[in-house]
Amino acid sequence: MKALLIARRELAGYLYTRSGYVILAVILALNGLFFNAFALGKAAERSATVLSHFFYYSSGFTLVASVFISMRLLAEERQAGTLPLLYSSPLEDRDIVLGKYLAGLAFLGVYLVCTLYMPLMIMVHGKVSAGHILAGYLGLLLLGSAALAVGTFGSALARNQMMAAIFTSVMLVALVLCWMLARITEQPLASVFSGLSLWNQHFPSFQAGVVHVRDVSYYLVLTYVALFGATRVLEARRWR
């Protein structure tokens, strides 16, 4: 599959350059500090509650990691002037977008694997179910995959990596804050804004160890729509 060739090339760019490890180290360090200060620091709480706090804070850092991972995917090619080389290769636009996205998703998966020691620490000192951990990490992966897809769309729109990070951050913040619009608007718009909320409406169930089909479907649909938009942006640029 052509997309896998792009993904392997892009993933090597993360693994064999300093920037990828810097992103990984900084986000992991901040996540660990928050985990120690605000999750483990509440010793009187039950282990399941501490684990829920871990997923709460980790969801925020997963969004931040997605912004930094995705900002280089397509914007770097345009900034360096190498995007025309991809256009001239025997690759379709969807292969380019999908390959870049899969590389970012794989690197995000590396980050999530590196956070496993935190829930394992909770298991050592208390009792938590494996199902709760699996559900929470499924939620983090789905949340991260959707945010990464939005970041791929933002990277396709931007001329450089900084603008890509700004575009992605604005779109993600808008999706996160949709629940506030739901509170101040009337039906049927309230239901629409509530359903679009990236975190408040769809992640808390994963945080509590519960998986709902509607939440899984939301993240998958958002991922598809964002990647479809990124593909259309590349197609529009190809014919300019």
Rank of each mutant, 00 (worst) to 15 (best):
M1F: 09
L4F: 13
R8W: 10
G13W: 02
Y21I: 13
I23L: 14
L24Q: 01
I27K: 02
I27L: 13
I27A: 12
N31C: 08
F34W: 08
F35D: 09
A37V: 07
L40V: 13
A43D: 14
A43Y: 14
A43S: 14
E45F: 14
E45R: 14
A48E: 15
A48K: 12
V50P: 09
S52E: 15
Y57N: 04
Y57W: 13
S58N: 14
S59W: 02
S59T: 03
S59M: 10
G60Q: 05
F61A: 02
V64P: 04
A65W: 04
S66H: 06
F68W: 08
F68M: 07
R72N: 08
L74P: 01
L74V: 06
E76M: 05
E77I: 05
A80N: 15
L83K: 04
L83M: 14
Y87S: 10
Y87H: 13
S89A: 15
D93L: 03
R94N: 06
D95C: 01
I96H: 02
V97E: 00
Y101S: 01
G104Q: 02
G104F: 04
L105D: 10
V110N: 12
L112K: 09
L112E: 15
L112M: 15
V113M: 15
Y117Q: 09
Y117A: 12
P119R: 06
P119T: 01
L120Q: 06
I122C: 04
V124N: 05
G126Q: 09
G126A: 07
K127A: 13
K127W: 14
V128H: 07
S129H: 13
A130V: 15
G131P: 14
H132K: 12
H132D: 15
L134K: 09
A135V: 03
A135R: 01
A135H: 01
G136P: 04
Y137G: 13
Y137Q: 13
L143H: 06
G144P: 06
G144E: 11
S145N: 12
V150L: 08
F153W: 10
L157E: 03
R159M: 08
R159F: 07
N160K: 07
N160S: 11
M163Q: 08
A165L: 01
F167S: 02
F167C: 06
S169P: 00
S169I: 00
V170E: 03
V170T: 05
L172K: 02
V173P: 03
A174K: 07
V176K: 05
L177S: 09
M180I: 05
L181M: 06
A182W: 01
R183A: 11
Q187W: 11
P188Q: 09
S191H: 10
F193N: 01
S194C: 08
S194L: 11
S194P: 06
L198M: 05
W199V: 12
H202E: 01
F203D: 07
A208T: 10
G209R: 05
H212D: 11
H212I: 06
V213D: 11
S217K: 07
Y219K: 07
Y219Q: 08
L220E: 12
V221Q: 10
L222W: 09
T223W: 12
A226Y: 04
L227V: 00
A230C: 01
A230W: 00
V233L: 00
V233W: 00
L234V: 02
